[in-house]
Each structure stands twice: as structure tokens, then as C-alpha cells.
Design a protein around this nucleic acid. Sequence first.
DNA 1: CAGCATCCTGCTCGATACTG
DNA 2: CAGTATCGAGCAGGATGCTG
Lengths: 142, 142
Amino acid sequence: MVTVTAGLSAGSETSPDPTDELISDVFARDCLSRATLEDVAGKWGILALLALGEGELRFNALRRRVQGVSEKMLSQTLQTLERDGMLSRDVITTIPPRVQYSLTPLGERVAQQLRGLAELLEGSVDEVGAARAAYDARALTG
Amino acid sequence: MVTVTAGLSAGSETSPDPTDELISDVFARDCLSRATLEDVAGKWGILALLALGEGELRFNALRRRVQGVSEKMLSQTLQTLERDGMLSRDVITTIPPRVQYSLTPLGERVAQQLRGLAELLEGSVDEVGAARAAYDARALTG
DNA sequence: CAGCATCCTGCTCGATACTG
DNA sequence: CAGTATCGAGCAGGATGCTG
């Protein structure tokens, strides 16, 4: 795996694997793909993207959908995701003001991946619950 | 969407949608699926699962693969994922001691989803980079 | 309604040192 | 090698109040 992180070839670059077409690597500390992964997969990022995957929403509707998120964190999360090109923010200057959030094509693709993950986990609650119970029982008995 | 979080039916449960077979919901604050989502999608959780998706690894090998993770955080992350039934920890009592980490079937399924996400993002670095540049330029010019 | 600014808490995380 | 224990800094994140 090539781990060049800024698109620049290192002085001693030797093309280790010609079949490898990716120049970005989520395992590399300073790679943009890893930073994006953290934005997208963060606690609130996932839920915001999943919610918008169901259709565009206004700020407070989003806030109600993503239970437990504070105004501050939702605002912050949305700004980060907008900066990463995952969603677009459309201001309708009326009184009262309205702001519609919707996914970009890139955001849609990411949301689709996240949906798969969320559905898998929602369908595995029993399995996870059993695993936790077994683990905790083990911890008690040694 | 039914948002029962513990498999218990609320007193006023009215079966809002008969076609909905899921009883867990990642959007619900206290649902186990959401907790699991946070464990799995956390900063280090994703990378640990992705690394193990390439094959079983020992502690320090995992630590080298997941660049930037501290000993403490890796240990903590692995414990959480083991508790959730995503991976298994096999101790080989030799001197020096060896511990092999490998994915469970559930972990494999989760890792597969994460791989799709990671590959998508690795392939979108240019798009994300451009989006960030545009966003930052906007912020400067007002 | 859709936010930003401010303050403040506490939990996350990294560094360091020690154990089997 | 594979961790655990402890400590301290810093950032995540909640509460509150204000603006357009």
C-alpha cells in the first residue's frame, strides 16, 4: 500500500506495487482520507448523513431526527460535512429564515455505505447483546 | 420507525407501521445499536476492524498498522470491540507472550461495510480536497 | 427559525512508568 | 511482547443568552 499522503512522490519512491492505484490510505496518520473518515464516521456525522439520506431536512427537523444532539454539535457537524463536500446548505431568506440541508452526490454515496452499516448493526442487536452479556459474565467469574 | 430501545413494548404502543420489522433504531438515544455504532465507527474502531479485515494480527502489529494509535487507546478499543462480539482475542502463553486478534463472523460483516466506506473515501480525496478549498476560499471572501 | 458567542465541566487521549 | 496504572492537558460537548 502506497502511503503518500499529499500526492507528492517521496524521493525514494519505488512503485512498490504497480497494481495499486490508490495513493491515499486511511491508515496513514496525515492522509486526507483519514481525516474525512473521522468527520464522516464521527458520532454525529454518521447520524446526520443517515438522516439526510432519507431526504433533505431543515435544521430543527434534523435536530429532532438525531436524538440527543445539541444545537452546537449539530451546527458544528454540519459545517464540517459541508466543508468536506458531503452536503449543501441552502438558505431561504424569508422571515422566519429557513435553511435546507441536502446531500451532494458524494454525500449520497457515503450515506449509502453508512446505511448498510447501520442496517447490519440494527439487525445484530441480539448478537451484540448476547456477546456483551457473555463478556461481562466472564469478567465477574474471572 | 419503531423506536423501542430494549425490546419492551411501551404501554401505549400502537404498531404504527406493520411493514417495519426492525425494533432497533440507531437514531434513538439509548438504543444498543447506536452504542455499537459508536464503538465500531469510532476513530480507532474503524481502523482496527479494517486492519483485522486483512487478516489476524498480534497487538504490536496492529499498533504499527493503525498509525498514530497509542498503546492505551488500542488496548481500550480492542476490549470494547471484543465485548461487542466483533473480534476474538486468543492468548498463546509462551515467553514472550503472544496474543492474536481476529474478527468474528459478525466482525467480518461489519468490516466489509467499513471497507466499502474506506475505499469510497480513499477514491474521493480529490473531490474532498477541492470541496475544502472552495469552502475555505468562500470563507475568506465572505 | 437558525444559528453564533461564551462559559464551564469532564471525559478523552497521550505520555510515562511499571508488571507478568 | 502485551499489556495495566497513573497523571495531566486539552478538547469535546452541554447550558445559556443573544442576533438577524
